[in-house]
Structures are given as structure tokens and as C-alpha cells.
Design a protein around this nucleic acid. Structure first.
Lengths: 146, 146
DNA sequence: CTGCATCCGCCCGGATACTG
DNA sequence: CAGTATCCGGGCGGATGCAG
């Protein structure tokens, strides 16, 4: 049991001395983690609720990410001892702060959405293009000859 | 050639209607992308230079991420037509803005470093613990009975 | 020096079935 | 309802070799 696939729930995380940003991103790296955070940011959410809202996530990955986020101290899991069982996940203050920070990323993305789209277009064009003008067929910028 | 493994260079990216954050993160998701950005933030960097600074990245992944970042319009590739060839990668203004934003993430990480570490400790303890006190061995918080 | 192509192992993550 | 366990395919990414 101590082997097999580790999934997102990597207990032994690889440290990256380069910079702490990587660490943060690695935590939220999960394709679903952010979605979960967003869904939970508005208030306590039930398991099935998440399964619907995040939508696209499998039960497995949902649970996995939930556990991970809980471990990170970003979510609090509350079990209501009722029948049928009722479990709610709630963002911690820390998570809400992170959420606010993520918003600045969104801001960045929105501000440069067109730039990025344009960049894609240019890159793809200059790249997929087999050959047009014999001169200047290379995709890279060349510095002023000096 | 038109098939096989797609790697990081996924041209056809999956759209996530949930929120734009995911998009941004997916762009920088590459374990190495951030490292590259950081290295390039200080100024134009050569290929081999990156290979050393990021350190841990294979030539393959480096190239792949470089291409991706270039496509995103975050890096500018400049080829100096000399011999031996000299290629430099430089952050675009847009990338530098992103870099600044990422710094706020670092700030968050630093502010809550201890909280996170503590959360890990608690979670791991309450979880790895096979059994100690017969009562209250469950890891979840239970809400006040009401 | 810079970069692409191929091979290939390994992990990620989806599907399914079963438990409390 | 809320998970856990198992199977298993796909692609992610390292290693290597070759080209400009």
C-alpha cells in the first residue's frame, strides 16, 4: 500500500529552493483546487454541492483536492452527525485572503486578455506558416545589427 | 507527427467556464514556467543560463515551457545571428506585471507560512495517529449541538 | 550553443464498485 | 449522502541522440 500512484495527495512534497512562488502555486496547482476554493468562498458548501458546482471533477479528484486543501489549512471540514450524513466545507480566513489575492491574477488576466489572444495569433501564424516570403521567414526577432 | 503526446504545449486548451483564474494558473501551471519567469525577470537570459538557474529542468521541458511562454506573449525570443548561436529570452512588460502580481502571492505565503505548517502538523497528526484516546479520535470538527 | 525527435517509464486522474 | 479502493489508460516528462 505504501506504493502505487500518489495522486495529488503528495505528503512528501518536493521543495523548490528557487522561490516560494512555486510552493504556493503547487498547492493550488490542482486543476480543481481553485474551483473548489471559489465555490467555497461564498460560504459553507456540501460535498454534493461541490460536485455539481465545480462540475467536470470526478468524485475521486474532488475528495483528493478537498483533503489536500484541508491539510493546507484552507478548508475546514465539518461533519454533522445526522442521518443521512451531512458534511460541509468552509474556507478559512487564510483561504479567503488567498482568494482575494487570486482576484488580482484575474485582474491581470482580464487586462491582458487581448494581448494574450493576439500573441497566440501571431505565434501560431508565424509558426504554422510553412513558407511565404523567402526573406524574414524566421519567427524570432533579430536585434539591430551592431 | 500530428499525434503522440501533447506535453505542456497544448495548443487546444480546455476552457473552464467556472472562472478565469483557472486559465491564468493553467498558463503558469508548468512546474518550471514560474522559475523561468523569475529568472528572466531580471533581464535577458540565455538558454544555457536558464538551464543552470532553473536547475532541475531538463532541456526538453525548458524548451517546451519557453515556447509556451513565448506563445503567451510573456517572453520575447531574440536570436543573435552569430556563431555560435546566441539566443536570449526577455520578459515582456506584461510578464513583468504578472511577476509583480505573483509577488503578492509570495507575500501571502510568507504571512501564513506558520499557519500552513501548523495545519500540516495537525492534519498529519490527527490522521496518521492510529489510535490514542478512545474518545474523540475522529479528525473532523463537529459543530455545536443545536 | 540551441533545439527538435524518439523512446519509454511513471504518475495523474477517470470510471466503477463497494462501504458506513 | 459521503466517501474509499481498485483498475487502467493516457499524457507528462526524463534520457538520449541528432541537427543547424
Amino acid at each position: 500500500m505504501s506504493q502505487g500512484h500518489t495522486d495529488v495527495t503528495d505528503q512528501a512534497e518536493t521543495v523548490d529552493p528557487a522561490c516560494p512562488v512555486v510552493e504556493v502555486l503547487d498547492r493550488v496547482a490542482g486543476k480543481w483546487a481553485v474551483g473548489i476554493l471559489v465555490a467555497a468562498a461564498k460560504g459553507p458548501v456540501r460535498f454534493t454541492e461541490l460536485e455539481r458546482q465545480v462540475e467536470g471533477v470526478s468524485r475521486r479528484m474532488l475528495t483528493l483536492n478537498l483533503r489536500k486543501l484541508e491539510r493546507e489549512g484552507l478548508l475546514v471540514r465539518t461533519v454533522h452527525p445526522t442521518v443521512p450524513p451531512r458534511v460541509e466545507y468552509e474556507c478559512t480566513p487564510m483561504a479567503l485572503e488567498l482568494y482575494e489575492t487570486l482576484l488580482s491574477l484575474v485582474s491581470w488576466a482580464e487586462r491582458h486578455a487581448v494581448d494574450i489572444a493576439h500573441a497566440h495569433l501571431v505565434y501560431d501564424t508565424e509558426h504554422a506558416a510553412p513558407a511565404e516570403s523567402p526573406e524574414r521567414a524566421s519567427r524570432a526577432r533579430v536585434p539591430a545589427t551592431r
